[in-house]
């Protein structure tokens, strides 16, 4: 299998790299010996049938789950022993397939609570939130068309709106690597296009890196330069969207011919 890389990626070291990552739930291998590498500024897709271990991989990256074997390097540092908040401070943000918004707080408070905490001592937290943070939160809400809900309780939002709020909360700390878990599912088509534009903009202009889990192939095809396919916890294929979508193994895994 060929992995196409643009010239500038070849000589860069990966932003995120996993080697031999395995995660077992009892006897079930949710991830088995997976290797991957993501380069700065790249938009990478992560696809695979239901239950193939995509969300588990995210959980391992953001340190909700402890990996059983292997190592994960982010910005050159081994993170598989770090605490979740430390990884977040390093510039990794994610969204959750099953929403994790603070349901009883207002939308604005949700956003403010996701600001950049970056190794602050408790003393630095002993002040009201900074006007700039507030400004940024409101801008993001406006972009996500949630501004009319600024003071609504997050738990009262519709599924799609909570999905958008999750994206907002992931963008809030200005991270370098953003993991989006099915961020576009349940979002209306017009807004999906806006989100696509925003992702492209962030990637091209600010050099942000994305890893996207999606079942929507069009979304993947439009955005991603490379796609990574998982099946039963193992890497099945990797390559450009076109390559992967014509790959026999992938077709078989999805449609089980």
């Amino acid at each position: 299998m060929t992995t196409e890389m643009t010239s500038n990626q070849k000589d860069q070291s990966p932003l995120l790299e996993g080697r031999g990552v395995s995660k077992y739930f009892g006897g079930l291998a949710a991830l088995h010996n997976v290797d991957f590498a993501i380069y700065p500024g790249e938009i990478m897709g992560l696809i695979g049938p239901n239950g193939s271990g995509k969300t588990t991989l995210f959980d391992c990256l953001s340190r909700v789950q402890q990996i059983n074997t292997g190592e994960i390097h982010f910005k050159g540092q081994e993170i598989s022993k770090k605490k979740p908040f430390q990884v977040a401070h390093m510039g990794l943000a994610r969204t959750f397939q099953v929403f994790r918004v603070y349901r009883k707080l207002t939308v604005l408070e949700n956003m403010l609570l996701s600001r950049q905490w970056r190794n602050e001592s408790i003393f630095r937290q002993l002040r009201p939130s900074h006007p700039d943070t507030d400004q940024r939160a409101r801008e993001l809400l406006e972009f996500l068309t949630l501004d009319h809900l600024t003071y609504e309780q997050a738990g009262n939002l519709s599924g799609g709106q909570q999905r958008l709020l999750e994206i907002g909360m992931a963008l809030m700390p200005d991270p370098e690597l953003i993991l989006l878990d099915e961020a576009a599912s349940g979002v209306n088509p017009v807004l999906i296009n806006t989100i696509k534009d925003r992702i492209l903009h962030l990637s091209n202009e600010q050099g942000k890196t994305f890893l996207l889990i999606e079942h929507n192939m069009e979304f993947i095809g439009d955005l991603c330069s490379r796609v990574f396919v998982l099946n039963f916890g193992e890497k099945l294929a990797e390559g450009t969207p076109e390559d992967v979508m014509t790959n026999e193994d992938v077709i078989e895994a999805y449609f089980g011919s």
Partner: peptide, 17 residues
Amino acid sequence: VAIREDEVGAEMRGINT
């Protein structure tokens, strides 16, 4: 308050819970 609402989420959004 974030810890009360969702401790795991708070930790992952960078709060040293």
